[in-house]
Amino acid sequence: MIPIKKQYRRLRSLLFALSSVIMFFIFWELIALYSPSPYVPDPYSVLKAFITMLTVGDIDGYTLTWHALVSLERVLLGFIVGAATGVPIGMLLGIKPTLKGAVTPIIEPLRFIPPIAWIPLSIVLLIGLWRYIFLIWIGVFFPVLLDTIAGVKRTSITLIQMAKTFGADNKKIIARVIFPSSLPEIMNGLRVGLGVGWMCIVAAEMIGGEPVGLGRLILKYANLLQIDVVIVGMITIGLIGLTLNYFILLLEKRLFKWRVEIRA
């Protein structure tokens, strides 16, 4: 049984959230109404476009669901490659500070180059799906790498010494102490990495070629000056990003029951 006071507080925060959503739509409606440009769609026309995209599909016949699935596939592939490289390299660099010192001058400037800038090179260097994977990887790799390094560094020296006094070799120390101890940071890096990777989808799909993908949908309709569909694409990207983040948070909660901070 939830106490009345708590129930009241819940209801109040729900009302606040609802009213801010309503305010948002009113604001949007006003911008659409008073904008000098004829291309700013109001919420209602976006809703209509949303339904059309879901049921009928775009000019090439692809539905919104299909666009989303194709984009998700690309992002998840890029994410898997990003995790499979970021975590081990991060562990290695965290454990070997001299190596980290050696590669920092390469890694640090690289991570400030936005995925969009990599498009020409990826077209020259790679083919097909690998171009997408590479551009998503750019977004995923660095957060995963940096958080993994941070996690390794945070590992308590006492725990490592304790394992040594029990006769653990380096391999066992890494597998049984450093890795599990860094796992919360690694998961955080994966969550941020997946989010950033997902945000790279538009850039990745600027490569052109195939007509499917949420980024492609946005670009296609931007060229047609049909901004209502562009916004449908934007909202879909936002909602899917939110959902992905939520699922990883849920996984973190289950994995890290042992953490005091997450208990509440």
């Binding site: 006492t158 725990l159 010494q161 304790m162 006769g167 049984r176 102490v177 599990p180 101890s181 042992w258």
Partner: peptide, 30 residues
């Protein structure tokens, strides 16, 4: 690696991701 040392540290040396029994098993595993 050859002898068995039971070392007890001043600082907290339990693995926070393992339960009580999981911690006690840690030395046995190693």
């Amino acid at each position: 690696r050859k002898q068995r040392f039971g070392v007890i540290f001043q600082e907290d040396s339990l693995l926070p991701w393992r339960t009580v029994i999981g911690n006690v098993k840690f030395g046995l595993e190693l």
